[in-house]
Structures are given as structure tokens and as C-alpha cells.
């Protein structure tokens, strides 16, 4: 870090591990996870808060780590795609994504894995079109979403779709 740069020591809890990082207040959570914590599974697809590739869980809820400043997340529990040891739900989601052939290039995959994990933790309920809306949080450019929606259905068991007849 160049001389004279404002920085502070921040303690982050990621996947049940403690990371002490010396950072500028302006650093985003995504950049700190990737560059300081070495957790490069959190990807940056747009840095505009749209694509969801950078999705992490903050206290169990999905959040866009590209839009958050890392310094604000001390004393919070952060989960990334690397956290399968710490979160068995994550490991289950990863397995279902593989089984349903729900990935091609793999770049968006961590974001979808974490999104689905978060939806399970939040005890998500809804029908098929709600599920598509929830999955629309993130963008995949390769697969056409067929496998991702199969995986989501298996994991979240949407209710009989009262509106599916309404096209």
C-alpha cells in the first residue's frame, strides 16, 4: 500500500475462520475476500450489483459482495463458496449442481451455489415462478438455466404453481 494511504486493521470471520486484514476503508468485501483472504472463488462479473457472481452469505443471507465495503463487516459471519467444511448445506448444493449438469464455464457457478445455499437457510417458500424470480438474482450466460432450475427445484421443492397456468 502506498505511503500515506488511510488504512485500518479489520477482523473478518469467513467460513468460521478469522482473517486479520490491513485495508483501506474503500475496499469492497469482494476484493478483500479475493486479494487479502485468498478466497478467489467469489467472482466479479460486473461490479454493478447485477450479475450475482460475487454472492456471499452475511449471517446466512445472500448479499452482493461487490457492493459492500469490507470494513463494515466485522463481527458478522461471512460464508463464501469455499465454506463447505463450515456449512454442510453448501456441500449439498454443490453436489446437486454437479448432478443436474447445471454448469458450463463455471464462472457464475459459485454465485448460484451461494444463492441457493442462502435460500435454503432462509427457509425459502414459493411456487415455480417465484423460484424463477429468486434465481433471476444471478446471471448465467452458458447454460440456458435448464440444469440450474432443475437443481433449484430439487433443493427448494416449490409448491404446486397456482400461477403456472397463467402464462
Amino acid at each position: 500500500m502506498p505511503e500515506g494511504t488511510e488504512h485500518r486493521r479489520v477482523t473478518l470471520t469467513v467460513n468460521s475462520q478469522t482473517y486479520e486484514v490491513d485495508i483501506e476503508p474503500r475496499r469492497t468485501l469482494a476484493d478483500v475476500l479475493r486479494d487479502q483472504c485468498g478466497l478467489t472463488g467469489t467472482h466479479l462479473g460486473c461490479e454493478q450489483g447485477v450479475c450475482g457472481a460475487c454472492t456471499v452469505l452475511i449471517d446466512g443471507s445472500p448479499a452482493r459482495s461487490c457492493l459492500l465495503f469490507a470494513a463494515g463487516f466485522e463481527n458478522r459471519e461471512i460464508t463464501t463458496v469455499e465454506g463447505r467444511e463450515h456449512d454442510p448445506v453448501l456441500a449439498k448444493v454443490q453436489q446437486v449442481i454437479i448432478e443436474e449438469d447445471a454448469l458450463q464455464c463455471g464462472f457464475c457457478t459459485p454465485g448460484f451455489v451461494v444463492l441457493l445455499t442462502g435460500l435454503i437457510h432462509m427457509d425459502w417458500k414459493g411456487d415455480e415462478s417465484d423460484l424463477a424470480a429468486a434465481m433471476s438474482s444471478n446471471i448465467c450466460r452458458c447454460t440456458g438455466y435448464q440444469g440450474l432450475m432443475r437443481a433449484a427445484r430439487r433443493l427448494l421443492e416449490p409448491t404446486a404453481d397456482s400461477t403456472s397456468d397463467q402464462v
Binding site: R34, D35, G41, Q94, Q104, G106, F107, P110
Partner: peptide
Amino acid sequence: GPDRYVTGAGCYIADLASVIG
């Protein structure tokens, strides 16, 4: 194989850039 993508163990160019930094 591609299965490693689900755990974030892919190695995309930004990941190399981050390691070098």
C-alpha cells in the same frame, strides 16, 4: 474437471492476477 468449479477452485485469469498482485 469442471466439478471443481462448484467449490470455487477454478483458476480464471483474475484469480492468477490476484495471486500475483
